[in-house]
Simulated scan of single mutants.
Amino acid sequence: MATVSLTGASKEDAATVFSVLRTAFPTDRPADDLPQEQPGGQDLVWTAEFEPTQEWIPTDPIPLEGPVSATLQGGYAAVDQLREALGAAFTVEEQGAVSGDQEQEVDLLLRTKRS
């Protein structure tokens, strides 16, 4: 199991990123559970858990309205599989990483892929 947290994104972009991951891997969220904005103008963080598997269906590139910050947390293999799935749909730029004994945390910036 790995956790994906999204910040700096519109609810539509958050839904797009989670949809890509939901297509590739089982998740703790039902398919109709879409990100919702909360009143108050505070910075939002959307979070979901995914169970990366060796076999996943790659997605074609999908446009985003703007850049999305994503933090992936989990075991090394799980984080690598999530990053690979995101890389099929978006341009992925690593912003930083923290490695532990059994798990890692990786900060990514996702953008629309340019042809």
Rank of each mutant, 00 (worst) to 15 (best):
Q42A: 08
E65K: 10
E55I: 15
L108M: 07
E93M: 06
D43E: 12
K113D: 02
T112L: 04
W46C: 04
W46S: 04
L109A: 13
P30G: 10
D13E: 11
Y76H: 13
G100W: 13
L110F: 03
L21Q: 04
E65H: 15
D60H: 08
D60L: 15
P63L: 06
D32F: 14
T112V: 13
D33Q: 06
G66S: 10
L72H: 12
L72Y: 12
D43V: 15
R83V: 04
S5K: 11
W46M: 02
D80V: 15
G66C: 00
A77R: 08
Q54I: 10
L86S: 02
P67H: 07
F18L: 14
P35K: 07
P58L: 03
P67L: 01
A97M: 06
M1Y: 01
D33N: 13
R114M: 10
V92F: 10
T3H: 05
L109H: 06
P58I: 12
I57L: 13
W56K: 13
V17D: 00
Y76V: 13
Q54Y: 04
E103I: 14
G87H: 11
K11E: 11
G96H: 07
E55N: 09
D13F: 08
P63R: 11
A85V: 06
Q42V: 11
S99D: 07
Q95G: 09
V45N: 02
E12K: 05
F25I: 12
P61H: 02
T7G: 00
L64H: 09
L108Y: 05
M1R: 04
P30Y: 03
T91L: 05
Q38E: 12
K11H: 08
A78W: 00
R83F: 00
Q36K: 09
A78S: 15
P39T: 07
E65F: 03
